[in-house]
Design a protein around this nucleic acid. Sequence first.
DNA 1: GTCTATAGTTCGATAGAC
DNA 2: GTCTATCGAACTATAGAC
Lengths: 204, 204
Amino acid sequence: MKSTRRFGPEDSETRTKLLDVTEQIMSTEGYAAVSTRRVAKDSGFTSGLVHYYFKTTDDLLLAAYRRTTERAFGRLMMIMDSDRPLEDLIRLTSDTTRATLALEFLALANHRKEIRAEIARYSERVRRLQAEVVAKALEHSPVNERALTPEAVTTLLVVVARGLAMEESVGIAAGHSQARELVAWLLAQLVPPLQPPQTAPRDV
Amino acid sequence: MKSTRRFGPEDSETRTKLLDVTEQIMSTEGYAAVSTRRVAKDSGFTSGLVHYYFKTTDDLLLAAYRRTTERAFGRLMMIMDSDRPLEDLIRLTSDTTRATLALEFLALANHRKEIRAEIARYSERVRRLQAEVVAKALEHSPVNERALTPEAVTTLLVVVARGLAMEESVGIAAGHSQARELVAWLLAQLVPPLQPPQTAPRDV
DNA sequence: GTCTATAGTTCGATAGAC
DNA sequence: GTCTATCGAACTATAGAC
């Protein structure tokens, strides 16, 4: 009883369109609002076609996640060559649209065990690339303290920036500006401003 | 054309049971998996009864959110009297079950505009209470630095602890132990250990 | 307070026509 | 590559019986 079902190629314009629409729905209404019928309606195709490109709804969501992550890789590679990599990393991670999507994928991972492992694996890969950016930025830091590894700084920076952005996207703002100032001050201790201060920074 | 619908009281055992089940479903399958029928099934009642207590599904979710938040208030009040308030606050906020619920409510706020404002308001109230805990803990801190307000420290601590817990609940662990060590080290500068060190801590 | 019944949506996934 | 047709399932919200 072999199935007669067929599936579409990865490099199709239609497929890209379907992923665009999927991402859009996730941002505005959450991953749970993504259905093959809904994506079909918003993209002008039919649900049958969506199933032609993505066997199941989970496959569609996973493909959207992969594309998002690959784009994140690209942006991080660009930041590697920046002369203010830490600021750029924070700015990138603070983007509310991206943070909202990240929140959705995290929630998705929480509730779809088939997708979970892949999201965890990709996320850690992104984290490692972020850590490379930070390591490069800290290369000439005057601070020398055991606990201050690039991995620690990276995780702290990214989790804070993304956490604040997630809260801000729903209108929570209490303590945010102060927290950002504190982070900026901590970073200033780690990486001296472009114009070095008269007195050497102390250990942090 | 007056409606004949009636609604149940707030202090009912059945109502409590329905909220328990709702919370359980949210934790394991996400807020989007909460439906009146599903809650009915898991609690041994019928969907008609769920609608008797909660006019709409959103009302049910909002009631669950309120109950969760009120419990959080209670726990924070208890921490106020602890002799290690910062550690307790971090431990509380690091709880993965609670962090998962928090993630769900954040996602919910993102996608249900009627609920959003209320979640933002309650969340900021919780944050202010957390800041009181931190303020009390920092009262006798030897560190004196402009950027180091209780609000800044609170937001940083809470966002980091919750953010790490959210990631851990899906199996993301890269950089976590190192980030926690860094936070612990930073805190040790702010609040001296119970046995004070021989040399005074420097400014952070 | 609890249940039954019901109308009207939306959904996943498949087979098969074009 | 795209669409139509289809089955079976789950959902919301209401009215009204017990």
